[in-house]
Simulated scan of single mutants.
Amino acid sequence: MTSREYWKGVRTEMSKVVWPTRKELGAFTVVVICTCAVFALGFWAVDSGFLAILKAILGVTLS
């Protein structure tokens, strides 16, 4: 396969892509940011709980 054939194939495949509208892109962005925030809060809660358990059982501190 030559370089010219490769780029022709790339152009053909890119023309098949259905790009999101501006409204869809905004909605998807909000969903991604909210999902990241939920996971961050979840990891923080698990980490805080785990640290509380270690402090209670072993007297471990992070100072």
Rank of each mutant, 00 (worst) to 15 (best):
R11I: 04
R4D: 14
K23Y: 01
L54T: 08
T2H: 06
A40W: 01
V31N: 10
M14R: 14
K16G: 07
V32L: 15
I33Q: 11
W7E: 08
R4A: 15
K55W: 06
V60A: 11
R4N: 13
T12L: 07
V18H: 11
G42I: 05
A27D: 11
V31K: 15
K8Y: 03
F43S: 11
E5I: 00
R4Y: 05
C36M: 14
G59K: 07
G9S: 12
R4F: 05
E13D: 13
A40L: 11
V31Y: 06
F28I: 08
A45S: 12
M1P: 03
V38I: 15
G49R: 07
G9V: 00
P20I: 02
S15L: 07
G59E: 11
S3L: 08
T35R: 12
E5R: 12
A27E: 14
V30R: 15
I57K: 13
K8A: 15
G42L: 14
A52P: 01
S3M: 04
V60T: 13
V46S: 05
C34F: 03
W7P: 01
P20M: 04
S3V: 02
G9C: 04
L54A: 11
K55Q: 15
G42A: 14
W7S: 02
V18T: 15
Y6K: 08
F28W: 08
I33S: 05
S15A: 14
S3A: 03
L41D: 02
C34N: 09
V10G: 04
G59R: 06
M1G: 13
K23T: 10
S48Q: 13
I33M: 14
V18L: 09
G26H: 02
L51G: 03
V38C: 08
M14D: 11
I53C: 04
S15R: 11
F28Y: 07
W7V: 04
A52V: 00
S3K: 08
K8F: 00
Y6F: 15
L25D: 09
T2Y: 04
T2A: 09
M14L: 15
V31R: 15
L58E: 14
E5F: 01
E5C: 03
A56Q: 09
F43K: 09
S48V: 05
W19V: 09
M1Q: 06
C34Q: 08
A45H: 03
I33T: 11
A45P: 01
S3R: 07
V17Q: 10
G59P: 08
W19E: 08
K23V: 06
E13N: 09
L54N: 08
F50S: 12
K55L: 07
V46C: 05
I53K: 05
S63E: 13
E13C: 04
V38W: 04
S48H: 06
E24N: 04
D47R: 04
W19I: 02
E13F: 05
L54E: 14
V38H: 00
T2C: 10
V31C: 06
S15H: 10
I53V: 15
F43Y: 10
F50Q: 05
F39C: 10
A37F: 08
G59L: 10
S3C: 00
S63R: 12
V38D: 02
A37D: 01
